[in-house]
Simulated scan of single mutants.
Amino acid sequence: MRRTISIVAAAALGAAIAVTNAVVVAAPAGAATISMRGADVSSLQRSLDLGAKYYNASGTAADPLDILKGIGLNYVRLRIWNNPVSGYNNLSKVLVQARAAKAKGLQLMIDFHYSDTWADPGKQYKPAAWSSHNIGALQSDVYNYTLSVCNALKSQGTTPDSVQIGNEINVGMLWNDGKVVNNDFTNLSLLLKQGYNATKACNSGTQVIIHTADADSDANARWFYDGIRAKGVPWDITGLSYYCMWHGTLANLSTVINDVRTRYGKPVILAETAYPFTAANADSEANAINGSAPCSGYPATWQGQASNFTAVQNTARTAGAIGVFYWEPTWYAIKGNGWAPENINGTGDQWDNMTLFDWTGHINPNVRWTP
Rank of each mutant, 00 (worst) to 15 (best):
D141C: 13
T355Q: 01
A333F: 14
W118T: 05
W327P: 03
K104G: 01
V8N: 12
K200H: 09
N21H: 02
Y326W: 14
Y225Q: 08
D216F: 15
L192W: 08
I71T: 13
Q164C: 13
A22Q: 13
H362P: 01
L191Q: 06
A280C: 06
G336T: 12
A316H: 02
A32I: 05
L188V: 05
L50Q: 05
W351T: 05
A129E: 15
A221P: 04
V180K: 03
Y332L: 08
G205D: 15
V163I: 15
S284E: 12
I110M: 07
A31L: 02
N290R: 13
V324Y: 01
G157M: 08
L253H: 08
P371K: 12
L108M: 08
T199A: 11
L73S: 03
N197C: 00
N176C: 03
A128C: 00
S6G: 07
V208I: 03
L91S: 03
T347I: 06
N74A: 04
D66S: 13
A32Y: 09
C295F: 01
Q303R: 12
A316R: 05
A286F: 01
I135T: 06
R368C: 00
D161K: 05
A119P: 00
V41A: 04
S148F: 00
L78T: 06
Y196C: 03
G320S: 08
A62Q: 15
P276C: 10
G136P: 00
D120W: 12
K53H: 14
F224G: 09
W369L: 10
F309V: 00
T20L: 14
T355N: 04
H133Y: 15
K179P: 00
K154V: 00
A279E: 13
T4A: 10
W223Q: 12
A119K: 01
H362G: 03
P299K: 11
G227R: 10
N337V: 13
K104S: 03
A18M: 10
S296W: 06
S58E: 14
T273N: 09
N167E: 02
L188H: 06
Y326Q: 06
W130F: 11
L190S: 12
W223V: 07
I17W: 10
A333C: 13
A274M: 01
A15E: 09
F224D: 05
D259Y: 08
Q305C: 09
Y326C: 05
S131Y: 05
Q313E: 14
Y264T: 02
G265R: 07
E285M: 15
A15H: 11
K193R: 15
F185H: 04
N220W: 06
N345D: 13
L78N: 04
W235D: 07
N290Q: 14
T249Q: 09
Q45D: 13
V233S: 06
K154F: 01
C202K: 07
V312C: 06
T146P: 07
A321M: 08
A39G: 13
W130S: 10
P267A: 09
T347G: 08
